[in-house]
Amino acid sequence: MQFVKSKLPVVVTFGAAFIIVAQYYFNIPAWKTLAAEFLRWNVIIAAFALALGIGGIVKLHWGRISRRQPTAVYSAATLITLAIFLFVGLYETTRGKTYTWLYDFIYNPVAATSYATTFFFITSAAYRAFRIKNSYAAVLMISAILMMLQVGVFSVYLPVAPKIAAWVWNIPTTAGMRAVTIGAALSVVGNAFRVITGLERGHLGGGE
């Protein structure tokens, strides 16, 4: 059991990753075919992971309902909604009239509303965060204002704003973003190498 839980995943990871990385560097047709096959498997496994999500939601909310927690009513609402979407989707496929109606007039507005609340949060965040507490905060605030002034009508009445904003955007922002991206990418390479070689097993519930 220990082999299946901790060693087998490392062997599978190393084998698949070795083929995929090696075919990137070396032109060996058989490895290329194998790598394409592994990538297709990855897509299938990812689809199963979505099903795992459904299992996770059912387990969590069913547990709450059976323990009669105060939030059980919301859990029941979640499970009923899940059941409705699942049943309608399986019965008439996602192209069916009812499913499309559910998607367009229930899921879509609810999801869009959730995202739209960001509008309020950004307003209060700007009001609260952009205080000139020190020189860094001043730079942040001025950059933010410039970015807002470069879009839409302001750039017509204040033509210098887009020019300064473009400089902020193209030079310091891009330089900073590239630095972060390169640094983070190297760290990701390090982590990927540790996972592939089995030196890092945090994702398997263990350490190193």
């Binding site: 700007a126 609260r128 965060a129 933010a144 972060v180 991206t181 640094g183 983070a184 760290s187």
Partner: peptide, 10 residues
Amino acid sequence: AGCDAIFIGA
């Protein structure tokens, strides 16, 4: 802008 301290990328 919003936090007391952050970890940037790496």
